[in-house]
Simulated scan of single mutants.
Amino acid sequence: MSPVTGHLTVERIGATLVLTLNRPEARNALSLPMLAALHDGWLTADSDEGIRSVVLTGAGGAFCSGMDLKALAGDGPSPDDPVRARFRADPELHWKAMLRGYRPRKPVIAAVEGPCVAGGTEMLQGTDIRVAGASAVFGLFEVRRGLFPIGGSTVRLPRQIPRTHALEMLLTGRPYTAAEAERIGLVGQVVPDGTALARALEIAELVNANAPLAVEAVKESVHATAGLPEAEALERELAIGRPVFKTADAREGARAFAEKRPPVYRRI
């Protein structure tokens, strides 16, 4: 299955949903149709219990070059276009699509090739695991254009990488190579150009092989405890983690280990 919905390609590969930004002629700049389809993709992933992970990538050797400035200036679909109607009905729709106002409960793995800048780097911060091709480029260029990185970067970036690196990226507006991004912790690994998607799918398969309730609880705990005092965070961790031990999948994991066979998890 690989239908194209607006400017987004949606493909199911096993238990992984692959969302591909599909405006290669514009280096996958974010358009209103793309954002609407992205939002739908996150909801699809979370509502379909057969999906255990999501891979976000871009077509044509690019990840995302940020917001389409023509769309930002109002040069886009006519006011009566159904896509614009969706944004009028939900003023937060674009933030949800960019993972600023919505956190999928399924793990999201980014496969980055080429430019991943401005809104691309902002959306990247909403993903969980990140793989980049060797020639990928990152950066928050907003200050160079008299703008503000309002997609969450002044809040999230200093929580994800050391503050000095976050401030350098935010205040200089300079581009970062994939090697630099890996060094400061913005991405987890760098692979040869053209192989980021394949590596992301390999990681997704490792995630998919695990108990989905446990995986989702681990992700929830990491985010729910971020920034909390340690004692409070540990209490929250127990509240999230204890129920996992009571699941049938937890019993299946122990049984499969004892019987030296692969576990069969059923999300119960």
Rank of each mutant, 00 (worst) to 15 (best):
A256N: 07
V54K: 12
R255T: 15
G253H: 04
K260P: 00
I129Y: 14
I161V: 12
G14N: 14
A89Y: 15
Q160V: 13
R23T: 07
T247N: 11
G58H: 11
A211H: 05
V4C: 02
L8E: 01
R251Y: 09
G66M: 08
L234A: 13
L140H: 03
L93Y: 12
E205R: 15
I268G: 10
A211C: 03
T127R: 14
T127E: 15
P262G: 14
I129C: 07
V54Q: 01
G120L: 05
T225H: 13
L228T: 06
H7Q: 02
D46N: 08
A204M: 08
P162F: 15
R12C: 02
L99T: 05
R100W: 10
F148L: 12
E237I: 15
M67Y: 07
R103F: 09
Q189F: 06
L30T: 01
L197M: 02
D80C: 03
I109Q: 04
V190D: 02
E49S: 09
E252C: 02
V4Y: 09
G227N: 06
T154H: 10
A250R: 14
G114N: 04
P263A: 12
K246Q: 12
A97N: 07
T164C: 07
S135L: 08
V4E: 11
V10I: 09
I150Q: 08
